[in-house]
Simulated assay, not measured.
Amino acid sequence: MTEPRLRVSDEDGETWDDPSEDQIQRLYAGLNLRRRFLVLDRLDVPEAEVGRHYLQLALNDDLTMVIEYRQGSAATHYRADVPLPSDQGGEEIALPVLLGWASGRPGWSEGLSWVRWDTARECPWGA
């Protein structure tokens, strides 16, 4: 059996190894104000890099979203806002980002305006 290359987890701590695109879409569709986020962790990186290659999506109170990704060092840590609520067009923006990142599809990040993450100034995931 091969080691998983991707792990998805939710706010409840449930995990799915190597989920299909359909599974990721269902997990995204299940987000709500009680289950606000998904974390996609890349596991097919050198052992010292595990935990430093991920994409996270979190719902805000108004159902807009924040997406964060990191591809190694802190210098490759970015975030973007999805200004439309998930039920009013936000899905068309967020879902291609999740699926594209998970599969390593070229251009997955092009639909959003990314800014470097600054931990001294912001923490959209809460305290």
Rank of each mutant, 00 (worst) to 15 (best):
A102L: 01
I93R: 07
H77Y: 12
A74G: 07
R35H: 14
G107V: 10
T2N: 11
N60Y: 04
E92H: 06
S20D: 15
D17M: 09
R52C: 06
A102K: 01
A58G: 14
L40A: 09
G104P: 04
R34A: 05
W108L: 05
S20I: 07
W108R: 00
L57T: 11
R34D: 06
E68C: 09
R70P: 04
V8M: 14
E49M: 09
L43R: 07
V39M: 11
S109R: 12
L57H: 02
Y78M: 05
M1F: 15
N32I: 00
S73K: 13
E11K: 12
E122G: 10
D22W: 03
M1E: 13
R7W: 03
E92T: 10
D10P: 06
R79T: 06
D10G: 14
P4F: 10
D10L: 05
R116L: 12
V39Y: 15
A127I: 11
L33D: 14
G72Q: 09
E122M: 15
D22K: 06
Y54T: 03
R105I: 04
W16D: 09
D61I: 03
L57N: 02
V45I: 13
R5H: 12
D87C: 00
L31N: 14
G126N: 08
P4V: 03
S103Y: 10
T64H: 01
Q88W: 07
N60K: 14
Q56V: 13
D81M: 01
L40H: 14
D62G: 02
A94I: 02
W114F: 08
V115P: 00
V66R: 12
E91F: 01
I67H: 00
V115D: 06
V66A: 05
G126R: 05
L63N: 14
V66P: 01
I24H: 10
Q56N: 11
A74Q: 07
L95H: 03
D62P: 02
A29P: 08
R35L: 11
R52T: 06
S103A: 15
C123T: 05
